[in-house]
Amino acid sequence: MLDASHAFTLPAAAGVGYKAQHFNALVEDPGTVRWVEIHAENYMGDGGRPLAQLRHLAEQFPVSVHGVGLSIGGEAPLDATHLARLKHLCDWLQPASFSEHLAWSTHEGAFLNDLLPLPYTEATLARVCSHIDQLQEQLGRPMMLENPSTYLAFTESEMPETAFLAEIARRTGCGLLLDINNVYVSCTNQQVDPLAYIKAFPLAAVHEIHLGGHDEDADEHGAPLLIDAHSSEVVDPVWQLYTETIRRCGPRATLIEWDANIPDWPVLAAEAARATEILTPVPA
């Protein structure tokens, strides 16, 4: 078990999910943005512009590497080739943190490009912990695990998601990445109180927060069905939940995620500025 307490060095300030179209604006006028996050799988080519831009960005900003394809919750063993690619990226880039998802995305070698849900059982817990142990050992650093957006529940689940994540952090020493949009999406979909979720969450293990937008729909019975989309502004209830979380745990590195229908830089910078205001309240 690795000690996570000194391993995450992202500043307790606002960051953004890096998009190539924002490169010039970000480098020249970052506003309140103090760090960037990249999706690991987009920087595993042999060369070219993506890697050149990343090398440049890393000179100016702390970088968080966020994996979206390791399938930590998968029933199969972790893909050794992909693990080696993650290690290579972390070795040359020396990012401020590495994070992945509580989800599965690969089955029998086929990558599904979505974060698929898991039943919260003892068997899943043992499997996820063993995969995290393997990853942390291979990378030589602790990781953060992110809470998912969920749309349904498994009848076989034995414990709440908060207890499941707390136990993973306790057993593996990993940090947690608290995605507050995911909390709001999942709690709305599961019809539980999002503030109760935050109160039950092991906030001491949280070293990064994600904020993002979601889409609104309804299921066939007319119940609200929110869908994690990262294609719009953070909504007010998520900002309120974020404010309450920061009040409880103190400032944490906070990312604005916007991955589809990507806006011009000033719109994204304004979202980051709003997070910065909440992170650094004006003294009374």
Partner: peptide, 10 residues
Amino acid sequence: PPRDPRLATW
């Protein structure tokens, strides 16, 4: 289906 999470290779 993609056999690799790097979609640039798919």
